[in-house]
Design a protein around this nucleic acid. Structure first.
Lengths: 353, 353
DNA sequence: GGCGCGCCTGTTAACGTTCACAGAGCAAAG
DNA sequence: CTTTGCTCTGTGAACGTTAACAGGCGCGCC
């Protein structure tokens, strides 16, 4: 797909522009100056009540809509926020996106989205650039990798950026995320408490901080309990990967408990166990992560770590807004990092050894 | 480098906006007029190659970014498309969204999103209004209900709108969707061909055209085969609803085949059957709809009707662009309705009676 | 040589809004 | 009565870009 304009060579001229009503029209009808109309629109206090009414009437009767492009041109702010999205077809990112958008609307902002296929520096900067050209007032990056926050640090300093999801480790940009290590600890400890000698782990992709932090939390918990730490295979976030990892584990008689890095992986593990003739939870216990809407309807219903993606989105928006409205010198700086705590939801896929 | 602003002593330095480089700066450095810079930017042919190079160099060395707000103000087009989203946390809508966005980027467009919580006329019109104020060049509505296309018809006539998903029945706006009835026929016929006397149906919500069309396709197929048409319960699109419907069916010995309106419903049905001690597919066959990424890892792997949500998104964007660039009088009108054909994916949840 | 006709470039005027300032009217204070 | 100050309103000038037009230059043609 190429350029949509047929080269400005000849004049298109086919498009006749219908003149929309502008402030001047409203002003004329109301018998005031355009500036007074502007004042009414922006809720400026110094307008006589009677005048304001007259202007509002005129706006209504002309069905006036203000031209935000003109406003943006002079005020340099667009009431639009940019989102850098990655893998937004996954449930988590999609939910965050929705959380951000609906909170943004309540705050009077529009949301523009720039997806990237890979999270390398070049693509992220390119996305920032596109958003900048459209003069967004701030950026939220759904950013599960370190490279993103680093790239974000290279954005023009006047542009406020916040990262959501992934790791909270980076200093490069304010970050909102859940405490993945704590979630992993919850899951692992739960299984240990049920009497399992150790807990195996079906991990997500190696280069996602979510995955790394969950491994770390799992490993620390085992270590603290003096349990053996089994080795880990990496995969993608889907059931296929869980199935592959699960098949390997199903044949190992030492495996009695498996903590999965997300619910989809758990789904694959459940199927692998089922095929191998292992009963869950009698023979092997399984715990997931995310608590996706349908996880309670797996066979058997999945014990998992619940996280609220929508809340993650809303909080990241709130943080961005704080950073945008805070004057650097005067106010105390808003928090640099927000960490949400996940909860364990116990269903029937986990049981005593 | 004195700033142009007087900067009276009382003015807090915090409010001073850093002057960005504009066309005039580039022009000065390149030794040309700002208009020539504009011409270079817009690929106007009548610029000497040497001059163009000089301008491009100047742009690079000043790190110039054009101000799209100013451009939008004068050209009345923003290179931005609006999306009206509904339930975008669901896999289908999220995938369409992604498909639209990535196709839009390739076509040089930015994408703004306006979600609605409910699909009533007021909220949809409000969303259109917000998008209009931000001067989007066109709108795609992820619109699974009739009310949306009707509301769309009330949008300003200068604004091109396209609906994607849902029913293709409406005349109100150009529509891209899949052939739900054909998909349902595929699934139902497959089960009949396996020797089942009839096929039961676990339906989605009553007021979604997707659901209604699938019911219709299923019903017609049964009718054509002279099979009994069982009655239908409605639910939501999730596993919980499938579980509820599945429990009722599990106790009925006449039920040997179930066609589910989507894969999540099928997941719930599978669990209900499992709990009731029914084996799939030996006792009961189950077929889903959507072919979500993990459906091949259900227990057992799900036979389902595959639809390509990303393609749906891309096609809707293509259709919108066609409608936007077509001059009403001269060119032949682009298609009003695009219907994509789904495919049956046979796995192991369906078997002979 | 004059003329017309392409190329290439510059000058000026929009686009629709907000900002900065000025000024009219009126009330309270000196 | 003047002065001061506050409320309300209007005038002009930005903001940064593209559109419209004008003009200089070189070239080919008569």
């Amino acid at each position: 797909m190429a350029s949509r304009k047929p080269a400005a060579d000849g004049v298109p001229a086919a498009t006749v522009r219908p003149r929309l009503t502008v402030m001047r029209d409203v002003a004329k009808l109301a018998g005031v100056s355009h500036q007074t109309v502007s004042r009414v629109l922006n809720n400026h206090p110094n307008v006589r009540a009677e005048t304001r009414e007259r202007v509002l009437d005129a706006m209504r009767s002309l069905n006036y809509r203000r031209n935000l492009a003109a406003r943006t041109l002079v005020t340099r702010q667009s009431d639009t926020l940019g989102i850098i999205g990655f893998e937004t077809t996954l449930f988590g990112p999609a939910s965050m996106l929705y959380g951000i958008e609906s909170a943004a609307r309540d705050a009077g902002y529009m949301v523009s989205i720039a997806s990237v296929r890979d999270l390398d520096r070049r693509q992220v900067l390119e996305a920032v650039d596109r958003l900048t050209q459209h003069s967004v007032d701030g950026v939220i990056a759904i950013a599960p990798k370190q490279s993103v926050t680093h790239a974000l640090a290279q954005a023009p300093p006047s542009l406020q950026c916040v990262a959501v999801g992934g790791s909270g480790e980076s200093d490069a940009a304010p970050t909102v995320s859940i405490d993945n290590a704590a979630g992993a600890r919850l899951a692992t400890q739960h299984l240990l408490d049920l009497g399992h000698a150790t807990v195996h782990h079906a991990a997500g992709p190696a280069d996602w901080p979510e995955s790394a932090e969950r491994i770390e939390g799992w490993r620390r918990t085992l270590y603290a309990a003096g349990a053996v730490v089994p080795r880990v295979e990496h995969g993608w976030w889907d059931a296929e990967s869980g199935y592959a990892q699960g098949r390997a584990m199903a044949d190992d008689p030492n495996v009695t408990a498996i903590f999965c890095s997300n619910d989809r992986i758990a789904l694959g593990v459940l199927r692998a166990l089922h095929e191998a003739g292992k009963r869950v939870p009698q023979d092997v216990s399984v715990v997931g992560f995310d608590d996706m809407p349908d996880s309670g309807f797996f066979v058997p219903p999945l014990t998992t770590v619940h996280q609220d993606f929508g809340e993650l989105g809303r909080r990241s928006l709130a943080l961005l807004l704080e950073h945008m409205t805070t004057a650097p010198a005067t106010d105390p700086p808003p928090p640099h990092r927000v960490l949400l705590t996940p909860e364990l939801v116990i269903r029937t896929s986990s049981g005593p050894r």
